[in-house]
C-alpha cells in the first residue's frame, strides 16, 4: 500500500474512537433500554434515534464510511502482523494478538449482525418497531446466541484495548506508569461494557419480546 501510510494509520486510529467508539457506547445505551424499559422502552429508543434529523447522512458519515475504512484497513494491519505469543508470552503481546484476532471476529460479526437487522429494515422485511422481535428470535436461537456472545465480547475487547492503544499512539499516555493505570481503567471499562451488552442480549430472550417477533419470524426462519 503506497502513499502516506502514517496518515492512513492515524485516520484508522482516530476513526476507531471518533465516531466508532462513541457510536459503540451509544449502541450499548440504546440496547440497555431493553433491560430498563422492556419492549416498549427499546422501541422508544429505536424510534428516538430514527427521529433524529438527517438520519441517512448521520448514518453514512458517522457509521458506514468510518466502519468501512476502519474495518478494511484494519484487516490489512492484521495481515501485516506476525503473531509471536508462543515465543514472547507477555501480557501486552497477548493483547496485541487478541486485538488483531478480535478485530477480524468483530468484522465478521458486524457484517452478519447488519444483515440480520439493518439490511432487513432497508429491504422492508421488518420495521424499526419490530427490531425487538428480531432480536428475540436471534437470542432464543442457541447457535446465534453463542455467535452473538462471542461477537460482543470480541467487539468490547477490541474497543477497550483499542482505546488503550489510541492513548499511546497519540502520545497521551507516555510513561510506563500512565500506561499501566490506563490498562486498569480500560479493563474495568471492558467488564462494564461487556456486562451491559450481554444483559441487553439476554433481556431480548424474555417472553415479553415474543409478541413483536411474529411479524419478523418469516425471514428469520430462512437465515
Amino acid at each position: 500500500m503506497k502513499g502516506n501510510t502514517y496518515l492512513s494509520r492515524k485516520i484508522h486510529s482516530l476513526l476507531g474512537v471518533i465516531p466508532l467508539g462513541l457510536f459503540f457506547i451509544e449502541h450499548m445505551v440504546t440496547n440497555f433500554a431493553a433491560v430498563e424499559g422492556g419492549p416498549q422502552g427499546f422501541k422508544d429508543a429505536v424510534i428516538f434515534l430514527n427521529s433524529l434529523p438527517l438520519v441517512p447522512v448521520l448514518e453514512a458519515t458517522l457509521i458506514w464510511i468510518p466502519l468501512l475504512f476502519h474495518g478494511v484497513y484494519g484487516l490489512y494491519i492484521a495481515y501485516q502482523s506476525n503473531l509471536n505469543t508462543g515465543q514472547y508470552h507477555y501480557g501486552r503481546n497477548w493483547a496485541f494478538t487478541f486485538q488483531r484476532i478480535s478485530g477480524v471476529i468483530t468484522f465478521i460479526f458486524i457484517v452478519w449482525h447488519l444483515y440480520q437487522t439493518r439490511v432487513q429494515v432497508a429491504i422492508g422485511n421488518v420495521g424499526h418497531d419490530e427490531l425487538g422481535g428480531v432480536m428475540h428470535d436471534i437470542s432464543t436461537n442457541v447457535l446465534f446466541l453463542i455467535f452473538y456472545v462471542i461477537g460482543v465480547v470480541a467487539a468490547v475487547f477490541h474497543f477497550s484495548n483499542g482505546m488503550w492503544s489510541f492513548l499511546v499512539s497519540w502520545g497521551i499516555t507516555v510513561g510506563p506508569r500512565a500506561q499501566r493505570i490506563s490498562s486498569y481503567i480500560w479493563m474495568v471499562v471492558f467488564v462494564i461494557v461487556t456486562a451491559m451488552f450481554l444483559m441487553s442480549l439476554f433481556a431480548f430472550r424474555g417472553d415479553e419480546f415474543k409478541e413483536a417477533a411474529s411479524a419478523a419470524i418469516a425471514w428469520t426462519n430462512i437465515v
Partner: peptide, 17 residues
C-alpha cells in the same frame, strides 16, 4: 512520518521486555 515510520508500531511492547 513517512511510509514504514512510527505508525508501524502496534504496541505489543515485546521490545522493551
Amino acid at each position: 512520518m513517512e511510509e514504514g515510520g512510527i505508525e508501524g508500531c502496534g504496541n505489543s511492547q515485546n521490545c522493551v521486555r
